[in-house]
Nucleic acid binder design. Structure first.
Lengths: 189, 189, 189, 189
DNA sequence: AATGAATGAGACTTCATTCAT
DNA sequence: AATGAATGAAGTCTCATTCAT
């Protein structure tokens, strides 16, 4: 007799959220190409009819899913850089992000690629990546000048990608060296 | 009635090639997710039955298509760096590659992303990206030491991606500065 | 707080009417085949749940809608014939009805066809068309004998349909001639 | 070893025809509104996938089905009028067509209504009805002048419809009188 | 060697209706 | 009295693949 919020079937306000999370899981496993209403519904344990009830078709669902992904990623990134008390600590953080992301979060890496792929073709998804990029740079600018931040941001991207695709694990010294080089000012600037 | 060299019925060695090229076109337009035998057959102007006759299913076709893409891209990259006579010219070449790729070849960028996305999930495609990366680095190592080459390679990746996704066109000065910073040695190494 | 006559919450007698009118609009645009609760609810600007609250399913709604349509059409027909002071004026009225209906009221023509189509298969709708036909003939019998009225009624039907489906606009002289011929008695009757 | 034309599954050139016939059956029973790929496939005893293989969607199928219907109807009409040796026999034929069509062929009447309903809204189907109407009039013009043919054609339509919708069976004398009146010339023309 | 015909699986979506509120 | 939430059934259509030719 304790207060079961609802009795499960009707009225399930978390359902929409659960579907979005399940959608990201499905994308990570099967790619956007292999993501279907059926698979997402099964993963979220909701009836198939729920899919188009809650979302205006697959595009809408994908947009929401990737928006959530980029939010989560950007928030984590901001937190890590906000925790850095000095420029040196910020550089350490950046190096760790590159290394850790590759080792720890294969899933996020896959999802990020899927998002980029979509963004490369579909403008609606470019809005998502733009917002994300803006937040990343702003977080870096807590510690670095705008130009350095921009270069650093791009380098994180490239190093992460290459580390992920490479056969051998990333070399910490190389990563560290890359960060170091980029953060030194041009002599003539 | 005279012997036309190849009249298409018996032996059409170009057909297979044409299909592969058409496949890349279709991927560029519809993404891997939207690529089907039907669409590729239509784009290559070959009968649908040809598809499964020449290729062992979609995966096979995709692998061949992306192999061709990476070959073409790597060859172009090598040529550009081979044309550089000095370290300075090599740096110029790298800066131009980043800028030009973004402006000129939206198609290649899209295709590259699609490949990375596949490679992130499917090992078979990682072989393709690995071979490509190896050739890129080797080309860079004509002018730079291995560590610098590796960092440079990753930076090209990241800068190209960000420039492509960014709302505003890439800043040539920023690109140039990035290349410059990376190519300078660590003071303590 | 004062007694607004009907403030819509408790009792909204117009709502039912509005739904019926909207239903006819939807039928005119999408046909019975394309008429759904959703579309009608949207057209009437009422919540979807209202539909099955006010009507016992689609059949019920369709029956009410077509009943209203036939009432309106029959009333208009009666008025026009009642306004005729003589047999000659009645013939003029009939000729004008045929011509005007075609030019002016494409919507009514479409709806009438939809009703006939339903009536041809479903007895419940035949009741609606029968009542309508009875009123039409009674209106004609104000001016013509029963046999002539019956023939005239059928001719109006046929001429209207053919004029509506024909590529070229109806020929007023042909319409007039048809009415004239039918209204003349058989020589041997 | 006798010549089985085909062994049933693969290559079945009559299949397309069978589907069209089945489609008309389904329309007669359930109306255009109730006609679905599933039902037609079941009626024709073909797999569901055959439907969109042979036809570009439901609209295409409907258009073909109603084209066949109108062809058959027009051919029958032409034959009956061609068999009439004199103007008097032609009038008899018309009267019989009206009466017989109503009694004998409820199915054709229903289908004709469905076609008219579609034609009233969709131009593509108006092409079908126009071609049919042209053939009907041409057949009548073997025996009657153009104006009389046109009026007669419309009257056949109206009388058939009303007879079909009416509660009581059509009165042969009324039908005969209608034909007689229309076929007499205007006194002043 | 090559392909048109064909199909079963599964894609997305719309729908009428039910139910708890 | 009235409705937003929800769902299972069924809709159309696309697809990769098989098979007879």
């Amino acid at each position: 007799m304790t207060a079961e919020p609802t009795r499960g079937r009707r009225f399930d306000p978390e359902r929409r959220d659960r579907i979005i999370d399940a959608c990201l899981d499905v994308i990570a496993e099967h790619g956007v190409a292999g993501t279907s209403h059926r698979r997402v519904a099964a993963a979220a344990d909701v009836p198939l009819g729920s899919m188009t009830y809650h979302f205006d078709g697959m595009d809408d669902l994908l947009r929401e899913a990737f928006t959530r992904l980029s939010d989560q990623m950007a928030t984590r990134f901001e937190a890590r850089l906000a925790a850095a008390a000095s420029r040196e600590e910020a550089k350490d953080a950046v190096a760790q992000i590159i290394a850790h992301d590759v080792f720890g979060e294969q899933r996020d890496l896959i999802l990020t690629h899927e998002l980029y792929t979509l963004a490369a073709r579909v403008p609606a998804f470019r809005d998502v990546t733009n917002a994300w990029m803006r937040r990343s740079r702003a977080a870096l600018e807590r510690h670095f000048d705008p130009l350095t931040s921009r270069i650093l941001d791009a380098a994180i991207e490239g190093l992460t990608i290459h580390a992920a695709l490479d056969v051998e694990p990333p070399d910490p010294a190389a990563v560290r060296s890359a960060v170091e080089r980029i953060c030194r000012q041009d002599p003539d600037q």
